[in-house]
Simulated assay, not measured.
Amino acid sequence: MALFNNSQGDANHARKMTKQEFMQWLKDVDLNGDGGISRKELRCALKAMNQKFAWFKAWRAMRHADLNKNGVIKGGNEEEALFAYARERLGIVVY
């Protein structure tokens, strides 16, 4: 799984990526290839990014971005909601 790491390698610095890189990151997070992001997949990805309290952050992100409450982030609207949440709450800086 190819996950984004910042150039400094310091977990305390914000991660910087383009929106296109973020959307590719979502595809990489989809470990089972079903086209959606489960809370477990998101938690594993956040842990790999050295996010503290990854389980909690994944839970909160799912509550924010899983618009139809089916337990999977899938589709344009839900991916956009996760993108917005990541910018606001996960320290990901989009340029």
Rank of each mutant, 00 (worst) to 15 (best):
M1E: 09
M1T: 11
L3T: 11
F4A: 05
F4E: 05
N5S: 15
N5M: 09
N6W: 03
N6F: 04
N6K: 09
S7H: 09
S7K: 12
S7G: 13
Q8S: 14
Q8E: 11
D10A: 07
D10E: 09
A11K: 15
N12Q: 13
R15E: 01
R15G: 02
R15C: 02
K16E: 09
M17Y: 05
T18L: 01
Q20S: 15
F22E: 00
Q24W: 06
Q24E: 15
Q24G: 04
L26T: 13
L26R: 03
L26S: 06
L26I: 14
L26Q: 07
L26V: 14
K27R: 12
K27N: 12
D28H: 11
D28K: 04
V29S: 02
L31D: 14
L31G: 15
N32T: 08
N32C: 08
G33R: 04
G33I: 08
G35I: 11
G36W: 06
G36M: 05
G36R: 06
G36N: 06
I37G: 00
I37N: 00
I37E: 00
S38M: 07
R39W: 05
K40R: 13
L42P: 08
C44L: 11
A45V: 09
K47A: 14
A48V: 07
A48F: 03
M49Q: 07
M49G: 02
N50Q: 07
Q51K: 13
Q51D: 04
Q51E: 08
Q51N: 09
Q51R: 14
K52I: 12
A54E: 01
W55T: 14
W55L: 06
W55V: 15
W55C: 04
K57D: 03
K57P: 06
R60K: 13
R60W: 10
R60D: 04
A61V: 10
A61G: 12
M62K: 00
R63V: 15
R63E: 05
R63N: 13
H64N: 10
A65R: 00
A65I: 11
D66M: 02
D66P: 14
L67K: 04
L67D: 00
L67F: 06
K69R: 15
N70Q: 04
G71A: 02
V72A: 01
V72M: 08
V72K: 02
I73H: 00
I73A: 00
K74G: 01
K74I: 08
G75C: 04
G75F: 09
G75E: 03
G76Y: 10
G76K: 13
G76M: 03
E79L: 07
E79R: 06
E79F: 07
E80I: 10
E80M: 15
E80Y: 11
A81D: 05
A81Y: 06
A81L: 06
L82T: 05
F83N: 03
F83P: 13
F83C: 08
A84H: 07
A84G: 07
A84D: 06
A84Y: 05
Y85N: 03
Y85W: 12
Y85D: 02
R89D: 05
L90V: 11
L90P: 03
G91A: 07
G91D: 05
V93F: 09
V93L: 08
V93W: 06
V94E: 01
V94A: 01
V94S: 02
Y95V: 13
Y95G: 15
